[in-house]
Simulated scan of single mutants.
Amino acid sequence: MTDPARATSPGPEAPTDTASAGYTERLARLAGASWKQRLDVQRPYRWNVRRLNLGRVLDLGCGLGRNLAHLDGNGVGIDHNPTSVATAREHGHVAFTPEEFRNSPHARPGAFDSLLMAHVVEHVPHETAVALLREHLPFVRPGGKVVLICPQERGWASDATHVRFVDFTGLAELCGEAGLPVERAYSFPFPRRAGQVFAYNEFVVVARLPDRPR
Protein backbone atom coordinates (compact mmCIF):
# COMPACT_ATOMS: atom_id res chain seq x y z
CA MET A 1 0.00 0.00 0.00
CA THR A 2 1.17 3.51 -0.74
CA ASP A 3 1.98 5.40 2.43
CA PRO A 4 -0.30 8.37 3.10
CA ALA A 5 1.27 11.81 3.22
CA ARG A 6 2.76 12.58 6.59
CA ALA A 7 0.13 14.57 8.47
CA THR A 8 2.52 15.80 11.12
CA SER A 9 6.26 16.15 11.49
CA PRO A 10 7.85 14.03 14.23
CA GLY A 11 10.60 16.62 14.58
CA PRO A 12 14.26 16.56 13.59
CA GLU A 13 15.41 15.04 16.88
CA ALA A 14 12.85 12.23 16.95
CA PRO A 15 14.50 8.80 17.34
CA THR A 16 14.43 6.62 14.24
CA ASP A 17 15.43 3.33 15.90
CA THR A 18 12.89 1.53 18.09
CA ALA A 19 15.68 -0.41 19.80
CA SER A 20 17.40 2.71 21.12
CA ALA A 21 17.29 4.18 24.60
CA GLY A 22 16.14 7.42 22.98
CA TYR A 23 13.00 5.71 21.74
CA THR A 24 12.19 4.50 25.24
CA GLU A 25 12.74 8.01 26.58
CA ARG A 26 10.37 9.40 23.97
CA LEU A 27 7.66 6.88 24.91
CA ALA A 28 8.09 7.72 28.58
CA ARG A 29 7.99 11.45 27.93
CA LEU A 30 4.82 11.21 25.85
CA ALA A 31 3.08 8.90 28.30
CA GLY A 32 4.07 10.97 31.30
CA ALA A 33 2.70 14.31 30.10
CA SER A 34 0.88 15.91 33.03
CA TRP A 35 -2.26 16.71 31.05
CA LYS A 36 -2.55 13.06 30.02
CA GLN A 37 -2.34 11.99 33.63
CA ARG A 38 -4.95 14.52 34.76
CA LEU A 39 -7.41 13.53 32.05
CA ASP A 40 -6.64 9.78 32.25
CA VAL A 41 -6.47 9.62 28.46
CA GLN A 42 -5.75 5.89 28.58
CA ARG A 43 -9.12 5.13 30.12
CA PRO A 44 -10.94 4.24 26.85
CA TYR A 45 -8.00 2.17 25.61
CA ARG A 46 -7.82 0.37 28.94
CA TRP A 47 -11.53 -0.39 28.65
CA ASN A 48 -11.13 -1.57 25.08
CA VAL A 49 -8.38 -4.09 25.73
CA ARG A 50 -10.08 -5.39 28.87
CA ARG A 51 -13.42 -5.98 27.18
CA LEU A 52 -11.75 -8.36 24.72
CA ASN A 53 -11.38 -10.90 27.54
CA LEU A 54 -7.89 -11.94 26.52
CA GLY A 55 -7.00 -14.05 29.56
CA ARG A 56 -3.26 -14.53 29.98
CA VAL A 57 -1.64 -12.41 27.28
CA LEU A 58 1.63 -12.61 25.39
CA ASP A 59 2.23 -8.93 24.62
CA LEU A 60 4.60 -8.85 21.66
CA GLY A 61 6.17 -5.41 21.39
CA CYS A 62 5.17 -4.47 24.93
CA GLY A 63 7.18 -1.25 25.10
CA LEU A 64 6.97 0.25 28.59
CA GLY A 65 4.22 -2.18 29.57
CA ARG A 66 1.18 0.06 29.04
CA ASN A 67 -1.12 -2.75 27.89
CA LEU A 68 0.20 -5.08 30.57
CA ALA A 69 -0.84 -2.41 33.06
CA HIS A 70 -4.26 -2.18 31.41
CA LEU A 71 -4.57 -5.94 31.92
CA ASP A 72 -3.48 -5.77 35.56
CA GLY A 73 -0.25 -7.57 34.71
CA ASN A 74 -2.01 -10.74 33.52
CA GLY A 75 0.58 -11.63 30.94
CA VAL A 76 4.16 -11.48 29.74
CA GLY A 77 5.75 -8.84 27.55
CA ILE A 78 8.42 -9.14 24.86
CA ASP A 79 10.29 -6.22 23.33
CA HIS A 80 13.50 -5.94 21.35
CA ASN A 81 14.39 -2.71 23.14
CA PRO A 82 16.26 -3.67 26.34
CA THR A 83 15.71 -0.23 27.86
CA SER A 84 11.97 -0.55 27.38
CA VAL A 85 12.05 -4.03 28.90
CA ALA A 86 13.93 -2.70 31.92
CA THR A 87 11.37 0.09 32.30
CA ALA A 88 8.47 -2.36 32.09
CA ARG A 89 10.09 -4.43 34.82
CA GLU A 90 10.53 -1.33 36.97
CA HIS A 91 6.78 -0.86 36.67
CA GLY A 92 6.25 -4.35 38.05
CA HIS A 93 5.59 -6.23 34.82
CA VAL A 94 7.06 -9.51 33.60
CA ALA A 95 8.94 -8.60 30.42
CA PHE A 96 11.80 -9.99 28.37
CA THR A 97 13.90 -9.37 25.32
CA PRO A 98 13.23 -11.99 22.62
CA GLU A 99 16.26 -14.08 23.59
CA GLU A 100 15.41 -13.89 27.28
CA PHE A 101 11.85 -14.99 26.56
CA ARG A 102 12.97 -18.01 24.55
CA ASN A 103 15.08 -19.11 27.53
CA SER A 104 12.35 -18.42 30.09
CA PRO A 105 9.87 -20.89 31.61
CA HIS A 106 7.07 -18.92 29.93
CA ALA A 107 8.10 -20.08 26.44
CA ARG A 108 5.90 -23.17 26.46
CA PRO A 109 3.44 -24.32 23.79
CA GLY A 110 -0.07 -23.09 24.56
CA ALA A 111 1.02 -21.17 27.67
CA PHE A 112 -1.06 -18.10 26.78
CA ASP A 113 -4.71 -17.46 26.03
CA SER A 114 -3.98 -14.71 23.52
CA LEU A 115 -1.35 -12.81 21.58
CA LEU A 116 -1.40 -9.01 21.44
CA MET A 117 0.58 -7.04 18.84
CA ALA A 118 -0.25 -3.40 19.45
CA HIS A 119 1.61 -0.76 17.44
CA VAL A 120 4.17 -3.22 16.10
CA VAL A 121 3.24 -4.07 12.52
CA GLU A 122 3.69 -0.51 11.24
CA HIS A 123 7.31 -0.55 12.45
CA VAL A 124 8.46 -3.50 10.33
CA PRO A 125 8.24 -4.82 6.75
CA HIS A 126 5.33 -7.14 5.99
CA GLU A 127 7.57 -10.21 5.81
CA THR A 128 8.97 -9.47 9.26
CA ALA A 129 5.48 -9.06 10.72
CA VAL A 130 4.43 -12.42 9.27
CA ALA A 131 7.56 -14.08 10.69
CA LEU A 132 7.01 -12.56 14.14
CA LEU A 133 3.42 -13.72 14.21
CA ARG A 134 4.25 -17.25 13.09
CA GLU A 135 7.12 -17.50 15.56
CA HIS A 136 4.96 -16.64 18.56
CA LEU A 137 1.64 -18.30 17.71
CA PRO A 138 2.77 -21.69 19.10
CA PHE A 139 2.84 -20.12 22.56
CA VAL A 140 -0.92 -19.44 22.33
CA ARG A 141 -3.40 -22.20 23.08
CA PRO A 142 -5.57 -23.60 20.29
CA GLY A 143 -8.69 -21.45 19.96
CA GLY A 144 -6.92 -18.47 21.56
CA LYS A 145 -7.24 -14.91 20.32
CA VAL A 146 -4.84 -12.76 18.35
CA VAL A 147 -5.31 -8.99 18.52
CA LEU A 148 -3.54 -6.63 16.12
CA ILE A 149 -3.67 -2.86 16.61
CA CYS A 150 -2.22 -0.19 14.30
CA PRO A 151 -2.48 3.60 14.15
CA GLN A 152 -4.55 5.33 11.50
CA GLU A 153 -3.24 8.10 9.24
CA ARG A 154 -2.63 10.90 11.72
CA GLY A 155 -1.00 8.60 14.23
CA TRP A 156 1.09 6.88 11.57
CA ALA A 157 2.47 10.24 10.47
CA SER A 158 3.50 11.25 13.99
CA ASP A 159 6.34 8.76 14.46
CA ALA A 160 9.53 8.63 12.39
CA THR A 161 10.00 4.94 13.21
CA HIS A 162 6.84 3.95 11.32
CA VAL A 163 7.94 2.39 8.05
CA ARG A 164 4.61 1.50 6.40
CA PHE A 165 0.94 2.30 6.73
CA VAL A 166 -1.20 -0.73 7.55
CA ASP A 167 -5.01 -0.60 7.48
CA PHE A 168 -7.75 -3.21 7.87
CA THR A 169 -6.83 -4.81 4.54
CA GLY A 170 -3.17 -5.12 5.47
CA LEU A 171 -3.99 -6.60 8.87
CA ALA A 172 -6.40 -9.08 7.30
CA GLU A 173 -3.70 -10.12 4.83
CA LEU A 174 -1.29 -10.67 7.70
CA CYS A 175 -3.83 -12.85 9.51
CA GLY A 176 -4.53 -14.79 6.32
CA GLU A 177 -0.85 -15.61 5.81
CA ALA A 178 -0.65 -16.82 9.40
CA GLY A 179 -3.76 -18.97 9.03
CA LEU A 180 -5.87 -16.90 11.41
CA PRO A 181 -9.57 -16.33 10.65
CA VAL A 182 -10.58 -12.73 11.41
CA GLU A 183 -13.55 -12.48 13.75
CA ARG A 184 -13.87 -8.73 14.09
CA ALA A 185 -12.37 -5.49 12.75
CA TYR A 186 -13.25 -2.05 14.07
CA SER A 187 -12.01 1.53 14.43
CA PHE A 188 -11.39 2.77 17.96
CA PRO A 189 -12.20 4.99 19.79
CA PHE A 190 -13.88 6.96 17.00
CA PRO A 191 -15.27 6.06 13.57
CA ARG A 192 -12.78 5.48 10.77
CA ARG A 193 -12.99 9.00 9.32
CA ALA A 194 -11.52 10.43 12.54
CA GLY A 195 -8.20 8.77 11.80
CA GLN A 196 -7.29 11.55 9.39
CA VAL A 197 -7.16 14.13 12.17
CA PHE A 198 -7.03 12.28 15.51
CA ALA A 199 -3.59 10.81 16.23
CA TYR A 200 -4.85 8.15 18.61
CA ASN A 201 -7.47 6.49 16.42
CA GLU A 202 -6.65 2.84 15.85
CA PHE A 203 -7.36 -0.10 13.57
CA VAL A 204 -8.24 -3.10 15.74
CA VAL A 205 -8.46 -6.62 14.30
CA VAL A 206 -9.39 -9.66 16.39
CA ALA A 207 -8.58 -13.10 14.98
CA ARG A 208 -8.51 -16.57 16.49
CA LEU A 209 -6.29 -19.60 16.32
CA PRO A 210 -8.00 -22.71 14.97
CA ASP A 211 -8.96 -25.32 17.54
CA ARG A 212 -7.04 -28.58 17.60
CA PRO A 213 -8.29 -31.12 15.05
CA ARG A 214 -10.43 -33.73 16.75
Results as ranks from 00 to 15, higher is better:
Gly65Cys: 09
Ile78Cys: 02
Trp156Asp: 02
Ala194Cys: 14
Ser104Glu: 11
Gly75Ser: 07
Arg134Glu: 14
Pro98Ser: 09
Val146Met: 02
Ala111Gly: 05
Val206Glu: 03
Pro109Ser: 10
Arg208Tyr: 00
Asn81Val: 05
Leu54Lys: 04
Pro142Asn: 11
Ala207Met: 06
Leu115Tyr: 10
Leu132Arg: 02
Pro151Trp: 10
Val76His: 01
Gly77Ile: 05
Val140Phe: 14
Lys36His: 11
Ala199Tyr: 15
Gln42Ala: 03
Ala129Arg: 03
Cys150Lys: 10
Ala19Trp: 13
Ala7Arg: 15
Arg214Lys: 15
Leu137Pro: 05
Val120His: 09
Pro15Gln: 11
Pro98Trp: 14
Ala157Lys: 03
Arg192Phe: 15
His126Ala: 04
Ala129Gly: 07
Arg212Glu: 04
Glu153Gln: 13
Gly22Trp: 07
Asn81Asp: 10
Lys145Leu: 07
Asp167Ser: 15
Asp59Leu: 04
Val146Arg: 04
Asp59Ser: 06
His162Ile: 12
Val166Lys: 05
Ala5Phe: 08
Glu153Phe: 01
Arg208Ala: 09
Lys145Gly: 03
Thr128Arg: 06
Ile78Lys: 01
Val163Glu: 00
Ile78Ser: 03
Trp35Ile: 13
His93Asn: 09
Asn53Phe: 00
Gly77Glu: 06
Ser34Pro: 04
Thr83Trp: 12
Leu64Ile: 03
Val120Tyr: 05
Cys150His: 08
Pro82Gly: 04
Val41His: 01
Gly170Val: 08
Arg43Trp: 02
Arg164Lys: 11
Phe198Met: 01
Ala21Met: 02
Leu68Ser: 03
Tyr45Trp: 09
Ala88Val: 07
Ala129Asn: 08
Thr83Phe: 10
Pro109Gly: 05
Ile149Arg: 02
Asp159Tyr: 00
Asp167Ile: 05
Leu209Val: 04
Asp79Pro: 12
